[in-house]
Computed example of a mutant assay.
Amino acid sequence: MKVYEKHITVQQEDLDAMNHVNNVRYVQWVQDIAEEHWISIADTNQQHRYLWVVLSHHIEYKGEALLNDLITLKTYVSSSEGVRSIRKVEMFNAKTEKLLVKAETNWCLINAETKRPMRIPDEIKGIFKP
C-alpha cells in the first residue's frame, strides 16, 4: 500500500463549543486527504476519466485535538474489488504521536462521462500499490 501523508495545524474555525476539533471537521479532512492522494498519484487523463464517490464512512474518535495542535494525517487504499475501494485514514497528534481518529471509507469508482459505477481497472489498482 502507498501511504500518503500530510500535516494540518488546528485553526480556530476547526473548533466546536468544547474548544476541540469538531467531528464534522474530521470528516472533511478524511475527504480532503483522499482527494489530495488521488490527485497526487493519478495522471491528468485518469483524473478526467474517473471520479470517486463515497458510499459510507466509519469513523472512530480516539482523542481530542486542540487549537494550534499539529495533526499528522495518513491515508492509503487497503483494498479494491469490483467498483469499490476501501480507504483508511488515521490522524495523530504530531507531537505525542497519539492516535486521534481512525476512519474507513468505502468509495465507488464512477465513469466521468456516463456518471455510472464502473469496475476498477488494473491501471487504477496499480497506482495505489507501492
Rank of each mutant, 00 (worst) to 15 (best):
S40M: 07
W52G: 09
E36G: 02
Q31A: 09
I39E: 15
V27W: 03
E36K: 03
R49L: 11
R25N: 10
I33W: 00
R25T: 15
V53K: 10
E36R: 02
I39L: 15
R25G: 06
V30D: 02
W38C: 00
R49K: 10
D32F: 06
Q46E: 09
N45C: 08
N45W: 07
V54Q: 08
V30H: 01
I33K: 02
E35N: 10
Q46G: 05
E35T: 09
V27S: 08
L51S: 14
V30F: 06
V30T: 03
A42W: 01
E36Q: 07
I41Y: 03
V24M: 13
A34Q: 00
V54N: 12
A42L: 05
Q47F: 05
D43A: 04
V53D: 10
I39H: 12
I33M: 02
Y26Q: 00
R49M: 07
Y50Q: 04
W29S: 01
I41Q: 04
Q28H: 13
D32S: 14
Q31E: 15
Y50R: 04
A34E: 00
D32H: 13
Q31N: 11
L51A: 12
V30I: 10
H48N: 14
V53Y: 12
Q28N: 13
T44H: 13
Q31H: 12
V53T: 13
Y50C: 05
E35A: 07
